[in-house]
Simulated assay, not measured.
Amino acid sequence: MIGKLTGVILDKNPPEILLDVAGIGYEILCPMSSFYAMGDEKQLSLYTHLSIKEDAHTLYGFVSKDEKTLFRELIRVNGIGPKVALAILSHLDIVSLMSAVANEDDILLAKTPGIGKKTAQKLIVELKDRLVKLELSNSSNQVIKPSNNPNISKALSALQALGFKAKEAEKMLSVITDYTLSTEELIRQALKNK
């Protein structure tokens, strides 16, 4: 198994990069979140997952170990392959994905290309208990718990409907400490925090 690669980026063509490691060029598929984290760096280390099928050996790369861990949890779900898992991680960051599962927000998950409402519900059922037990190395990934306020997930969906990215909406809501607010009040507060 190839667990981590460090080398020089020869070519970027989302979702694929070509990474030169000691003279060997590895084609690696990465989620868009990893592309954003790479920036303009030429030297790069990626945590990798090797998927072996009859017709191909495919490497998937992630800037953070947490992304790789979530990717592996996603592909354990029946019916979710590596490409769909990559699409999910490209659409939602770690915090948004974990919050969507914890808050049973199938609407947000279904906005991912290749994921329908039934698949989103299946993801929630299969991942809910597993993600709670998951040990992520980045302690800054604070997930909004459903017990705090059920209106938070509604406000998050509303902010995304207004055009905010999942990560941005999550950040706007994370500042709010009063968990008794209604959905409308949460949206108003979040817009003030923009």
Rank of each mutant, 00 (worst) to 15 (best):
T69S: 01
L86F: 09
L134E: 11
D106N: 14
M98A: 06
S96C: 10
F71D: 00
L74M: 06
E67I: 00
S96I: 01
A100C: 13
N103L: 11
N103A: 14
R72N: 11
K111R: 14
K68A: 07
K117Q: 10
I80R: 10
S90G: 00
N103P: 08
S64W: 01
K117Y: 04
L97N: 01
T58G: 05
L127Y: 12
M98Y: 07
G81W: 10
L97P: 05
L92M: 09
P82V: 02
V84F: 05
D93G: 06
E126R: 01
T119I: 14
L109M: 07
K68D: 04
H49S: 09
G61E: 02
I107S: 12
I80S: 08
H49A: 01
N103T: 03
R130Q: 13
D66W: 05
G79T: 15
K111W: 09
P113Y: 14
S64G: 02
V101A: 12
K122G: 11
A56T: 10
V132E: 15
S99H: 11
L59T: 05
D93V: 03
D105F: 04
V95W: 06
L109A: 07
L92P: 07
S96W: 05
S51N: 10
G61V: 04
L108H: 02
S51H: 03
Q121E: 13
L134K: 06
D105I: 01
K133Y: 13
K111C: 03
L59D: 06
F71G: 02
D105M: 04
Y60S: 08
D66A: 02
I88L: 12
F71V: 01
N78W: 13
S64Q: 03
H49Y: 13
L127H: 12
D55C: 12
T69A: 05
V125Y: 14
N78Y: 14
V84W: 07
G81E: 08
G114H: 09
L70G: 10
L50Y: 06
K53D: 05
K117S: 15
F62L: 11
L92R: 07
S99P: 05
I124W: 13
Q121T: 06
V101Y: 11
A100E: 12
S51Q: 09
K65E: 12
V132Y: 15
E73Y: 10
L131T: 13
D55P: 13
H49T: 03
H49F: 07
L70H: 08
S51Y: 07
S90L: 03
V95M: 14
D93C: 00
N103R: 08
I52G: 02
K128M: 10
E73Q: 15
D66M: 08
D66S: 00
K117R: 13
L50G: 00
E67N: 02
Y60H: 06
K133R: 14
V77K: 07
I115V: 08
K118V: 04
R72C: 09
R130I: 08
A85G: 11
V63G: 06
S64N: 03
T119E: 08
